[in-house]
Computed example of a mutant assay.
Amino acid sequence: MALDPQAAALLASLAGAPAPDYARLDAASYRAALAAGGAASAFGAGDAVAAEEDLALPGPAGALAARLYRPVAGLDGGDEALALTVFFHGGGFVACGIDTHANLCRTLAARARTLVLSVDYRLAPEARFPAAAHDALAAVRWAAAHAVQLGARPDALAVAGDSAGGNLAAVCAQQLRNEVTIAHQLLLYPVLDCAHEHPSYESFGQSYLLDAGLMRWFKHQYFDADADRACPLASPLGTESLDQVAPATIISAEYDPLRDEAERYAARLAQAGVAATLVRWPGQIHGFASMLGVFDAADAALSFGAHALHAALYR
């Protein structure tokens, strides 16, 4: 399909920006540029929720900031215990945080009728691999152990994330499969292979918002030179066995350099007998689900993902 007109308009507005010099770019400058651009503030705030509560969770190297989103009560006004979804934000393992992804979390909470626990993790290069993965694992373990304390059902837990956060959600679903019961994983255009570049890097690696050079830079920030980028904590796609991993809903974007690894992961899950729903969102670019109020596809994709979460968590 042709590029979505709303995506094309956004890309056209950015076409005159100077190309970054990745050989000289540092993480602090990248974060400052994102903040100055104000992208997150330009998008819709997401659906209304009943409450948002900031928390601090114990992590392997200190407290992890988190925010709990509680959906508005149902039509019956009941106080039924809700399911719980642990969400990890994208940003290439280098940038972003709870605030930049609040609209995604509010919308998923409201439309899936689930508590959403959005968790910050240590960012690279200050904390390189596997720091983010270890933080994510600790957060899901904590959430599972404290579900009742949070007002959630102890038997209905999901993980979710976009981009780099999708990587962390997939890592948790794999690594905790024999420890924590995870009902579902919702992965939005996830990073799943840090060891290889798939053909979509070549096809969509320039001029589609997320470019191949930026992905290489992210990985250079995240990994030390001697890190094993192919190990399961880094590259969920390369995990030898996917038996008993939680069912998945995976949303890829047609014009995304990460498209192929997301779709290959869905195929591998299906081959392992894991229920996996894959939707390639037509005409769309990486990060589109965050663009509420700007892209109609963001609203539609989050409704689709929320429906999948609800169906898995309220069987």
Results as ranks from 00 to 15, higher is better:
S163H: 03
P60R: 04
D228A: 14
V116G: 03
G151Q: 00
K219N: 15
L108I: 15
A50V: 09
A8K: 07
Y208E: 02
A132V: 13
G77R: 05
D135T: 14
E261L: 06
L117E: 06
A36V: 10
S303E: 15
C172M: 04
E202D: 07
P154A: 15
S241F: 07
D193P: 00
E52L: 02
Q221I: 12
L188N: 12
A110P: 11
A212G: 09
A164Q: 07
L258H: 01
D120C: 01
A138R: 02
E261I: 09
A110C: 13
A12H: 12
A138S: 12
L34W: 02
V140N: 04
A61S: 14
L3D: 10
A139Q: 06
L25M: 15
I285K: 00
M1K: 12
D76W: 02
L309E: 10
L104R: 00
V94G: 01
W217C: 09
P190I: 08
Y22S: 11
T85C: 06
R113V: 11
A51G: 12
L168R: 09
A298P: 12
G91D: 03
A66S: 13
D76Y: 01
S13G: 15
A160P: 03
T107L: 07
L104H: 01
P232S: 08
S203R: 04
Q175T: 13
P247W: 03
A138H: 02
V116T: 07
A195T: 10
F129Y: 05
A28T: 14
A225P: 11
L233N: 06
A33Y: 00
G238W: 06
Y69G: 07
A45W: 04
A158T: 07
A48S: 14
T85P: 00
